[in-house]
């Protein structure tokens, strides 16, 4: 009996010591933010998203349960830009002063991101407008680097003793993104910074194509040209770069811009407004006239109307997740981007 007591006491002690040594709890609005936070936080962080990857991030109910999760958070991360309209209610209900906006434990992940589609006229006649610009910034790996930097700053604020650790992890994550983006060999040759700069200015592919390699270097690099060294998501995107697409909702501008898709229109008449008959006719005409091969729909939207349009025009409907966890294969941010690129490449390749 005494032995059992000792065992139980030791077990409880172990349990409490593990609990006491607990990792920083980072609560994020979106699963992508959680995935990035986990990457930069490593073993010192437990990142928990409030929304699911297959849920419309605009339409999350700020329930007592979500407030209860945020109540224990050391750090709260959100995109802002009026995407998570529900987060204010979660923060109010969480009763956790540490994570309120302006406090150490609050991170606005979008800070420093170049915003697009800022409405020139703010009027509800334009539909569900986001006054600060399109908030779907995470569907661009180069923005993920900025998001990671913002999260790292937040982690250092709440846990300054781990500053070196978080900085090291941030560097590793940013390099990992670059490798996933351009391929390992190019990153090793030029470094992430130069590649990012070239790519943002849309000069990377022409540069890689233009530069000739001597036979000696060709042999040493195992490639006939620099362009052959290109890998990762940029290489996958070559299958649809410069091609036309129609999206259901106005949330893909960052992805399209980054990977060279030409958005020719939206199935929704205005953001958040279902298409009228006249708009459907307009879209049919547009898709037929411009020979647009793909209509892409985020998986939390009803695909009935896009399928009708596809039937009329012969275009292909592609269902895409908008967030990490949106489909089982998109387990983390890297797999999510893999899935998007591969699905679109396949759709255009078929």
């Amino acid at each position: 009996m005494k032995r059992l007591q000792i065992w139980l006491t030791s077990f409880l002690f172990l349990l409490t010591s593990v609990y006491a040594k607990e990792r920083l709890l980072v609560v994020t609005t979106l699963p992508d933010l959680a995935s990035i936070a986990q990457e930069v936080g490593g073993e010192k962080v437990q990142a928990v998203p409030l929304a699911k990857g297959y849920q419309d991030p605009h339409y999350v109910i700020p329930s007592l349960k979500l407030m209860s999760v945020a109540n224990k958070a050391d750090l709260f991360v959100e995109i802002g830009l009026q995407l998570e309209l529900w987060s204010e209610k979660v923060l109010d209900g969480a009763r956790n002063p540490k994570i309120r906006p302006g406090q150490k434990g609050y991170v606005l992940a979008s800070q420093g991101v170049r915003l697009m589609e800022i409405p020139k006229v703010l009027s509800r006649s334009g539909g569900d407008l986001h006054p600060y610009g399109n908030p779907h910034i995470w569907i661009d790996p180069l923005n993920a680097k900025i998001i990671a930097k913002n999260i790292t700053s937040g982690l250092i604020r709440v846990s300054p003793e781990n500053e070196n650790y978080f900085h090291k992890r941030l560097k590793q994550f940013q390099r990992k993104i670059s490798i996933a983006m351009y391929g390992r060999k190019l990153v090793a040759l030029f470094g992430p910074s130069i590649l990012d700069k070239l790519y943002k200015k849309k000069r990377l592919i022409p540069f890689l194509k233009k530069k000739k390699l001597s036979p000696r270097l060709q042999k040493r690099l195992g490639a006939k040209s620099l362009f052959e060294l290109l890998g990762g998501w940029v290489k996958t995107s070559l299958a649809f770069r410069g091609k036309k697409i129609v999206f259901y909702h106005q949330s893909w501008i960052y992805f399209a811009q980054r990977f060279g898709l030409k958005i020719r229109g939206y199935v929704e008449e205005k953001p958040g407004i279902s298409p009228s008959q006249a708009h459907r006719q307009y879209m049919i005409k547009l898709i037929q006239e411009e020979n647009i091969p793909v209509i892409a729909v985020t998986n939390y939207y009803d695909d009935t109307i896009p399928r009708l349009l596809a039937k009329e025009t012969g275009a292909k409907v592609v269902i895409l997740p908008a967030m990490t966890g949106g489909v089982p294969a998109a387990k983390n941010y890297f797999r999510f981007m893999d899935y998007l690129l591969e699905t679109l490449a396949k759709a255009y390749g078929d």
């Binding site: 830009l81 979008s110 800070q111 420093g112 991101v113 170049r114 915003l115 697009m116 589609e117 800022i118 409405p119 020139k120 600060y132 610009g133 200015k201 849309k202 501008i253 811009q257």
Partner: peptide
């Protein structure tokens, strides 16, 4: 390429 978009800005 020009500007990425005519209506864009940095979130600062």
């Amino acid at each position: 390429t020009g500007k990425e978009s005519s209506s864009e800005s940095t979130a600062s």
